[in-house]
Design a protein around this nucleic acid. Structure first.
Lengths: 172, 172
DNA sequence: ACTAGAATAGTCAAGTGTGGCTATTTGGAT
DNA sequence: ATCCAAATAGCCACACTTGACTATTCTAGT
């Protein structure tokens, strides 16, 4: 996925950072947009460094453990713009792993499926409520657009689940 | 992702098959639900075999190249049910790699973003139209539910994109 | 002054996923 | 008869991803 590279380059574009900082920002603020984990970030930064899109400088502040400070290079800047344009212009199909179970739903009695889907539905509602409660504007406008997008998708999922559960209730 | 294992076990549950057959079925009929590739399928079948959930039998029909026929075992049957219940009861967050670009949309002039998103929108519409045109009932009821789910998500995305593009047009 | 727990910083081994490859057989066009 | 494209069957090397780990430094409570 080079959307991950796009993300890291985009974050480095605002200012140079070390890996921990980058991951920390992603975990704290972008958990709604990506689930990239720490070692993944480091691996991608390594690759970008090998390919010359970011520079690495090992820094030792006082007696804190050493850290690698990553900075975007001019060619990284160019890559960022290329990846950004590509990403904005491309619609990738979304696959929901939950649909695999749905496919085989007929295997179980309708009443059990209904109960299981209710559990799923409750989780979705919690997540949706959390997103809707989020203070808008906290981060960039773009992030808000992305979160708005997620909310729309979750609402659609909510409606679908409601309908399916109802349909199953009628069949029981 | 053990939804992949769930899928393969579920397909083997109807009847034993060899790897090529399984993958072929997935590619032809389940392209809307999963994007699992051939080598991934083989790798997962290998693991399931190592763990005793499926059995492997090498078969040589006539002078055709040898092939491995996979069959689900009783413990595989049990695993299938466990994974199925778990899958149905769990709502996993969906991350759209397209949102990463959205996050950084402000980097480019609004007019360019609008054009790029129009391209994305066109692709989405094509995909959506294709899904909507699909003959329902062709496969199991469960598969139709899953496809209906995808359609709902795509419509939500369609609406969101329309709105965003409109908003960007006003700003230009 | 001391200590448990959080924060800081990063790495490793192992699992997951896939583009591209090999190789044989069949079917249809010439 | 001959030949090429498609179908059949599988695998390998490599890249991506992550759970779990090490190790040090703050910090707040006692």
């Amino acid at each position: 996925m080079d959307s991950r590279a796009l993300l890291l380059l985009g974050l480095l574009r605002t200012h140079s950072q070390h890996g921990y900082q980058l991951n920390d920002y992603v975990e704290r603020n972008l958990g709604r947009v990506t689930d990239m984990k720490k070692p993944t970030a480091y691996a991608i930064l390594d690759r970008l460094a090998r390919e010359g899109y970011v520079s690495v400088e090992v820094e030792r502040m006082g007696n804190r453990p050493q850290r690698k400070v990553y900075a975007i290079t001019p060619s990284g800047e160019a890559l960022f713009l290329t990846l950004l344009r590509e990403n904005l212009a491309t619609s990738a199909p979304l696959y929901d792993s939950g649909d695999i179970g749905t496919m085989f739903a007929e295997t179980l009695p309708a009443s059990e499926v209904r109960e299981l889907l209710r559990t799923r539905h409750a989780q979705l509602r919690d997540r949706l409520a959390e997103f809707e409660r989020a203070p808008a504007h906290a981060f960039g406008l773009g992030v808000n657009l992305a979160i708005e997008h997620s909310i729309r998708l979750m609402r659609a999922e909510d409606a679908w689940l409601t309908e399916v559960v109802e349909r199953l209730a009628r069949e029981t």
